[in-house]
Nucleic acid binder design. Structure first.
Lengths: 370, 370
DNA sequence: GCTTGTATTTGAAACGCATCAAAGGGGCCG
DNA sequence: CGGCCCCTTTGATGCGTTTCAAATACAAGC
């Protein structure tokens, strides 16, 4: 179990310590024979470079850290996937840490990564970026994903306004006359979605639109409450299209409507926003607009690279990843639930991700399952 | 951007270098006032310990590495989740690397982790562990997940035989008379499942059982072919219960049967094995037996801890994680498809995971979505 | 054979921190 | 007042690499 170190290799190969180091880092500087000799010795001895020592001596390594609030959240996984592919493309490693919905853990891993001489760090913060002031002056490039805020820094997030527009267009296409939007507009991201909906509906003054504020946390229970309220309206005051600004909300609304004997989507259509896989595998598959997580991950790494390459980066930069029809998928499962023609949201979504990402890794994996 | 180091803190706080180090690692050895002073200085200066230097100087850190073949595979995520919780319980960090179905990358990250002075490393190998000989003599504890092989080492895998037994019991409970098992028995894991089925059926000589070897890769197409063949049999030779040894296979069988006008589960019931979420979100929800990924992750960390604590560990140890009714969930979605009573496989599965895991992290998250 | 230049190899000097033996500072007892 | 012992703090040492200026080897040109 005694660890083999570089000096052992050097002694065994009969060369100097620095030469072995060169064999590892600048193979082109060595005579081919020497290189070969050293490599053989390395594998014979089972030498494994001590990364800590390398980093200490040599500065940052080519690797990025990514802190996610949860691993079983489809959106986060897409981010991870996009970040991974982009990082590999530049020859960087990507290490992922799961903050497990715990802001203390989030902070812990963030500091850990910064202290590990990572070349850059990305976070999908789970709450308000109050911690930011402390992190802002960190000596490591950092990018925030899925969030925009006024603090200086780098941000990549979805274009929520575009998501609202897409949902609205969906409603228009379905011939909606009366739309109810459910959600706590106090959240910036949701506000933008509402804005997008309004803009898209500006050209359709005949469509009535109504926004109902949900409870503070946008829970399924909140959605249920609103759904129940909608169900009790007289038929002529009842909307024919409900938009949950969150999949969870939409899911609550659907439950309430169905419980009250209103057919979905027969009498009322319901759509969500988030592309939350849990919503898809629930008892009521849901029409939803998925934000482009893959692209967010990709852009995040690109911002990191940018900071690394221009040594003196701008202080702040926001990037909005567009939710075009191409990268955003509206899954129309709910409408088909009574017709046994469930679509495959997972696959649709994956296919579209792939289309917009230049890489076929996702598609390959997809094939393996089908 | 100039990094502040421990000596800066020491100078600024008017104490010695070693004292600051103690403040970080052995706070109890300091006078409270001194500790307070140092901590204030640390945050004032924004000091961030250099992990590389710590590791170099102090040996292994309390953290584990986990290399997964893919992040968007539900099973792997369960492993990650179980490993994470168990690791945190022991005060260890968990860093995850995505090998992206690439064995070169897998090897790369493995070496990276071993070289980073991780206290231990886990892998869910994607192929045969040919690399093992090289890794076996590594100076870092390593545990293989989801695999058993004859090479010396530590392994944790599901009890595939038990999975077969559970499926068989399911069939018996449904009153099956004629069971067809579909799958390439050449794969060790599948062979064990078949064995379990046979054992469970030993007490029911009246039930006819038939095993059909699928193509070499157990693809959905293979399943489709076999399903078509079954569909063309005269009704009295047709099974009333088909077991796909893989969810993908089962999915293919179902497609074929339905295409040929045979009702599932009206005339033939179909069950799978794997707990593959893609199968759940496919057009035909599937009855499936899910291997206890969460438990595998947990046990993996436990094995790591064991190796760390008993400095002279046994050379080899295999652990089979039982697929008891508690940790394995038989999701009975397929049977309900014609009755509009789709169950929520995802949730069932999560609930059962939680029940067996002592931690409520999963449950909390679950609540957030419903 | 000697000089200049190029291709390789060498080895000492950091890198930032944990450790630990040793020094310093009181307090208590005789 | 001296001797002890315990609680804190100190700072030199080494962890395994990379780096880089300097040394060496070798080849070509005169």
């Amino acid at each position: 179990m005694a660890k083999v170190k570089i000096s052992d290799v050097a002694r065994e190969a009969g060369v100097s310590l620095g030469t072995v180091s060169n064999a590892l880092n600048h193979p082109d500087k060595l005579r081919p024979e020497t290189l070969k000799l050293i490599n053989e010795t390395i594998s014979r001895l089972g030498y494994l470079p001590n990364q800590s020592a390398r980093q200490l001596a040599g500065g940052a390594t080519k690797s990025f850290g990514l802190v996610l609030p949860r691993l079983d959240h489809g959106f986060s996984l897409q981010i991870a996937s996009g970040a991974h592919n982009e990082a590999r493309k530049h020859g960087y490693d990507l290490l992922i840490a799961n903050a497990d919905n715990d802001d203390i853990l989030e902070d812990h891993y963030l500091r850990y990564f910064m202290g590990t001489q990572m070349s850059g760090v990305m976070v999908q913060p789970m709450a308000s970026p109050d911690w930011h002031p402390a992190m802002a002056k960190m000596p490591v490039p950092i990018v925030h994903l899925d969030i925009h805020c006024s603090e200086p820094g780098y941000y990549v997030a979805a274009d929520n306004e575009a998501q609202g527009r897409i949902i609205a267009e969906l409603a228009i296409a379905r011939g909606a006359h009366h739309i109810v939007v459910v959600g706590r507009a106090a959240f910036m991201q949701l506000t933008l979605r509402v804005l997008g909906i309004h803009k898209a509906l500006a050209l359709h003054p005949d469509i009535k639109i109504e926004v109902i504020d949900a409870g503070e946390w946008n829970t399924a229970a909140d959605g249920y409450g609103i759904g129940a309220q909608i169900a009790e309206r007289p038929a002529n005051e009842r909307p024919d299209f409900v938009v949950g600004l969150t999949d969870v909300l939409a899911s609550g609304v659907i439950s309430a409507l169905v419980d009250k004997g209103i057919s979905v989507p027969g009498q009322v259509r319901v759509a969500g926003c988030d592309g939350n896989p849990l919503a898809w595998s629930g008892s009521v598959p849901l029409t939803t607009v998925a934000p482009p997580g893959y692209e967010i991950g990709r852009k995040g790494v690109q911002l990191l690279m940018e900071q690394i390459e221009n040594k003196a980066p701008a202080k702040t930069k926001h990037i909005r990843v567009g939710s075009t029809a191409r990268t955003v998928t509206a899954v129309t499962a709910a409408e088909d639930i009574n017709r046994q023609e469930l679509v495959r949201p997972f696959l649709l979504e994956r296919a579209s991700t792939q289309a917009s990402s230049q890489t076929d890794a996702t598609a390959i994996n997809l094939g393996a399952y089908l």
